[in-house]
Amino acid sequence: MAEQGDGMRDAVRETYGSGDLSAVPIFAGGFINFGHWRGIDLTAPVGEPERVRSQQDLYRLVLDAAVPAPGARLLEVGCGLGMGCALALGERDPAAVTGLDIHPEQLRRARERHAALLAEQPERLAFVQGAAEQLPFADGGFDAVLSVEAAQHFPDLAAFAAETARVLAPGGRLALAGFFTVDDSPARPAQLAGLLETFANGLDIARPVTALTGALGGAGLTGVAAESIGAEVWPGWDRWLSRWWAPDTWPHNFLRAYRDGILDYYLVTAELPRVPGAPGAPGAPAVTVLPR
């Protein structure tokens, strides 16, 4: 997939620029994620309130996994319109939240949407342009790095992992939610391209979750774990899609790919050791992948 000098791939540039995915009705409330649907009755009609809650709850799941203490410094990589940043600011009492996105149009929208917060709390909320593989921040500047449904766009997971390790303070944590293939079978990219337009056009990159967990361990993070949460993502996402897409159209193939054991959704966590050279240093990753 082609990219320009800023490292942004063309499919990402179009989808989040002129395409403005945040304006598509299936991503209600300004969030752009598939949602975490635990506790939402999928046998009843699903409306916009339930949809927004599912997206907020995915952020809450990630924040719970990051376990930031009050006064923590948080970085979200791939912040989109900054809705998750605002949620974290309102619910977790951090010292500061920084949202980073590679797309200038997304950042413009984020700043417009949260203009009041930025004016009221300029020392606690900021939006910064940059790539996941080259974070424009000093070493050790954050207590937690968060990412929600953005890693499928990152061209270089190893560089992202190395940059995450660099910007985390000792004892800091990464918590990431996203979708990956269930294994490293070479057939997976073609299978997904045949099922899902976003993989066919290069917007999403088909990689196994172990590509990320291995990169995190190799970057010196410890306690690396990937937990399948697909059972609480895919059925709800498909139920919501049924309002907008007819049966057997390509978006419904997300659920099909999950049921066929090709694609899953994961919560990935890791921690930077407090003591240099502690277990989890490069070359000795401790990785756990919990199956669905």
Rank of each mutant, 00 (worst) to 15 (best):
G99S: 14
V167Q: 02
R274N: 02
L61D: 06
N253P: 02
D264M: 06
E227I: 12
F27I: 09
M1G: 15
G171C: 11
P136L: 08
V67A: 14
A193P: 03
A257M: 03
L89C: 06
A187Q: 14
A119I: 12
E227C: 07
D260R: 07
G223Y: 00
R207N: 09
R239S: 09
Q129S: 12
L135H: 01
D41E: 15
V148E: 11
G84N: 09
F254G: 00
G261P: 10
D20H: 13
V182S: 03
L196G: 02
T98W: 10
G84T: 12
R113H: 06
Q55N: 14
L87P: 03
P279W: 07
D139R: 05
H153G: 06
R113D: 01
H103N: 15
G194R: 14
A88L: 08
I205G: 07
R73T: 13
L89F: 10
R51G: 15
W240H: 13
A225K: 10
E50P: 10
G99T: 14
F180Q: 05
L221S: 02
L117S: 05
R239P: 01
P155L: 07
A200H: 10
A286E: 14
R274A: 13
T43F: 13
G35P: 03
T98L: 11
E232Y: 10
G214Y: 08
